[in-house]
Simulated assay, not measured.
Amino acid sequence: MALILVTGASTGLGHSTVNALADEGHDVVVHVRNQARLTEEDGTARWKGVVLGDLTELDEIRGVARQASRFGRFDAVIHNAGTMRTPEAATVNTVAPYLLTALMDKPARLIYLSSSMHRGGSTDLRGLSAGTASYSDSKLWVTALALALASRWEGTASHAVDPGWVPTRMGGAGAPDDLTAGHETQVWLATHPDVTPGTGGYWYHRQAQTPHPAARDEEFQARLIEVLESRTGVPLD
């Protein structure tokens, strides 16, 4: 069975993901913002452990990395945490996945939550530091990060996933996509022995899709990583 970290797992897609992984017998480490996000009904007894931290704060993101590293090298990390709010979107949706990735031991598999809205994102990276980035911007950037890592780290597969517009607290009750299908691709990518392409995929409901062209542009990927290194003070090996 695999050792898997899932961020932003107290509600919504993250919670569905950890429950599905636990049902399959995997050792799941669950990230939540704070202890108050957990209730007796969450099934914490089935989890390998819990790590705490607010992903809007760089110091707390570093703390999450330290806590998670105590469990050893993960087989997979699912960067699920997200927000649609400005100015937090850039930090939670892009900076936090980058910083956790840079600080932790390289896992066998990395899965980053994207969105179909990434196609409306901007390649102007000034909003990343200024706190003016939109949700779409942040999802384009994390998609580019995922695809950059696919060719950067030998031995680590990296994918981006559009979970669909699903009826979670973020998506709203009227969202048209299937809630179960919203987490199945992440679980599959984290655990299935045979995924094609084996790395660098942009996925929607287990089907490889074509992302925004900038997400695969090596020059844009390099600029993004340079800005993230400057923003966090942590280089990407």
Score class of each variant (00 low, 15 high):
Leu3Met: 02
Ile4Asn: 08
Ile4Tyr: 05
Gly14Arg: 04
Val28Glu: 02
Val30Pro: 09
Val30Tyr: 06
Arg37Gln: 15
Thr39Met: 07
Asp42Arg: 10
Gly43Leu: 06
Arg46Tyr: 02
Trp47Pro: 11
Lys48Trp: 02
Asp54Lys: 12
Thr56Asp: 04
Leu58Trp: 03
Ile61Ser: 10
Ala65Phe: 08
Arg66Ser: 14
Arg66Trp: 07
Ser69His: 01
Arg70Ser: 10
Phe71Lys: 05
Ile78Asn: 00
His79Asn: 13
Ala81Asn: 01
Gly82Leu: 06
Thr83Met: 13
Arg85Lys: 14
Thr86Met: 05
Glu88Asp: 15
Ala89Met: 09
Ala89Pro: 06
Asn93Thr: 11
Asn93Cys: 12
Ala96Lys: 13
Tyr98Arg: 05
Tyr98Thr: 12
Leu103Val: 05
Leu103Phe: 08
Asp105Tyr: 00
Tyr112Val: 13
Tyr112Ala: 01
Ser114Tyr: 07
Gly121Tyr: 10
Asp124Ile: 08
Arg126Ile: 02
Ala130Asn: 15
Thr132Met: 02
Ser134Val: 05
Tyr135Val: 02
Tyr135Glu: 07
Ser138Trp: 07
Ala144Ser: 11
Leu149Ala: 11
Leu149Glu: 14
Leu149Val: 03
Arg152Ala: 13
Thr156Asp: 04
Asp162Pro: 01
Gly164Arg: 02
Val166Cys: 15
Arg169Ser: 08
Ala181Tyr: 05
Ala181Thr: 09
His183Met: 01
Thr185Val: 05
Val187Ser: 04
Trp188Lys: 14
Thr191Leu: 04
Pro193Ala: 12
Thr196Ile: 07
Gly198Asp: 14
Thr199Cys: 05
Thr199Tyr: 04
Gly200Ile: 07
His205Phe: 03
Gln209Pro: 12
Glu218Leu: 06
Glu218Lys: 04
Glu219Thr: 13
Arg223His: 12
Leu224His: 13
Ile225Pro: 02
Leu228Tyr: 07
Thr232Asp: 04
Thr232Trp: 07
Gly233Asp: 13
